[in-house]
Design a protein around this nucleic acid. Structure first.
Length: 475
RNA sequence: GACCCGUUGGUGAAGUGGUUGAACACGCCACCCUCUCAAGGUGGUAUUCAUGGGUUCGAAACCCAUACGGGUUACCA
């Protein structure tokens, strides 16, 4: 069997949303499972959508995720160029070849005529389909118009009857009646190929034998196959992926909580966690395992276990996965995904690096993504503590003023400001004030941090600093 | 409208005719741990498998309708 080769073929929009990334991941896993090649091809046949720097952006995103390309615009390969706008002459040549073979034809129909046809179809409540007006032009007529420079497109000649069938690795057998297939445009009047055509030509030329893409193409795949057949090329294996939807069951959008990969990344989600989560959206392993490294995913991946129904993107579960990875993260990376957020939110000039790092470490097990460090550490940066009702209630106990007073004295008399000494101070307070457990810790915690929960108290106090602590105890 | 695809709990899902009175995970709740929260541990919650018909000794699983959802129907990709 030939080496597996698939491609990720995005448009250079400078944006990669979760669904796109997932397609890339699935393609990558599919092909790497069998040691195949993963190729990047840029589909920029719609010049109006092109964005500067988009190719690098795609490379960066994938690199962060651990996905590498065996071939592509930035790393070359045997079958380049890998940017469609650089392959223009090719498409024309192949389109003309198809005309010669009788599988396509020149069409000189104007937009006005097409629009008129469309209107008629609409008024008759019929689906519009090109009527094949130019299909039967004589050779002389065509020559003449070409010579006269009349703008033209090249259209695919579709069979009028019969049924086209193919086998999809996910959806199984798909059949579509040929009569609903339109004589679609292959080559636009500006000389650019349409997506559909460029895809087939490039896939063949680049020896792509596995096509993994969104299931919005399930129904148009017979058109592609007809093209392969007309050329006498071998059809690839198709894997159509179910869609990813937002929480409202609608297509992903900013509105329903969609985030692009970069948004998530910048909020301190780890790429490996995102990849892990995404791999589980619409695919399930043969076991109950939930946490997978990329290598494990490659080993376990089986396209037969891709589900057919759309999946809903659930940020809660992503957070759970991400939190899992954060717990195992080495400190340096933890700092990278948290400290910039702290810097942005708070004035850190009063603190040195070591202090900031200690703070982050204190919350390592408490956050599920990097940016969450900001909300969770608020008490360190805002002096005004607002107690909620529960705290106020708690503070009503009559033993509390004394407990706080004793503790305050302990702090005042402390020479070395260390976690150990603070622990000692709490212990002394226990003895001197005659309180323990909750009645010992809670008053101190509430008075100093303003809330009833948080990480370990001595460490928290230590980080807050003696001055702040005394100030809050005095209030 | 036509065509294609889908429909297991709040979410991701396992399941491919019979230890399923439907696994596992997220979420949620409770308990344990803990000064507290988180983490961790334990337990619980929720789907009778969209609906209605078949086929079968037996169906979530096979077949047919219906409903709902999504997709396609561009000189966009």
């Amino acid at each position: 069997m030939d080496k597996l080769r698939t491609r990720f073929a995005p448009s250079p929009t400078g944006f990669m949303h979760i669904g796109n990334l997932r397609s890339a991941i699935f393609g990558y896993l599919m092909v790497k499972h069998q040691n195949g090649d993963f190729i990047l091809r840029i589909e920029d046949t719609d010049q109006t959508r092109k964005v500067e720097g988009a190719v690098d952006f795609i490379y960066n995103t994938c690199k962060l995720c651990g996905i590498h390309f065996d071939e592509g615009p930035n790393n070359g390969g045997e079958y380049g160029p890998y940017i469609q706008s650089e392959r223009l002459p090719l498409y024309k040549k192949y389109a003309e070849e198809l005309v010669e073979k009788g599988a396509a034809y020149y069409c000189f129909c104007t937009e006005e005529r097409l629009n008129k046809l469309r209107k008629i179809a609409e008024s008759e409540k019929r689906a519009f389909q090109y009527d094949g007006h130019c299909k039967n032009l004589t050779k002389e007529e065509i020559e003449e118009k070409l010579k006269a420079g009349v703008p033209y497109v090249i259209r695919q000649k579709m069979p009028k009857d019969g049924v086209s069938t193919y086998e999809d690795l996910v959806y199984g057998k798909i059949s579509v009646e040929n009569r609903i297939l339109e004589d679609q445009i292959l080559l636009k009047s500006d000389g650019y190929p349409t997506y559909n055509f460029a895809n087939v030509v490039d896939d063949h030329l680049m020896h792509i034998n596995v096509v993994a893409r969104g299931n919005e193409y399930v129904m148009s795949t017979p058109k592609y196959n007809l093209l392969y057949d007309a050329f006498g090329w071998e059809r690839p294996t198709y894997i159509h992926l179910p869609m990813v939807l937002g929480g409202d069951g609608q297509k992903l959008s900013k509105r329903n909580g969609d985030a692009s990969f970069m948004d998530l990344y910048h909020e301190g989600y780890l790429p490996e966690a995102i990849v892990n989560y995404l791999a589980l959206l619409g695919w399930s392993p043969n076991s109950n395992q939930e946490i997978f490294s990329l290598d494990e995913l490659i080993k376990e991946f089986d396209p037969k276990r891709i589900s057919k129904s759309p999946s809903i993107y659930d940020e809660k579960k992503l957070q759970w996965v991400n939190a899992h990875y954060i717990k195992k993260l080495d400190d340096e990376r933890l700092f990278e995904i948290t400290i910039p957020h702290l810097k942005e939110a708070y004035d850190l000039s009063q603190h040195d690096d070591a202090w900031v790092k200690e703070l982050v470490l204190l919350y390592k097990d408490h956050i599920s993504y990097g940016k969450e460090i900001v909300s969770v550490t608020e008490m360190f940066f805002h002096d005004k503590l607002k107690l909620n009702d529960e705290c106020i209630d708690f503070m009503k106990d009559e033993s509390i003023p004394n407990t706080l007073k004793v503790f305050q004295e302990e702090i005042q008399n402390m020479n070395d400001w260390t976690v150990e000494n603070i622990k000692e101070a709490i212990n002394h307070t226990k003895e001197k004030a005659g309180v323990k457990g909750k009645m010992l810790f809670m008053p101190i915690r509430i008075q100093i941090t303003g809330v009833m929960h948080g990480p370990e108290l001595p460490n928290t106090i230590h980080l807050l600093g003696k001055d702040t602590v005394l100030k809050r105890l005095g209030e």
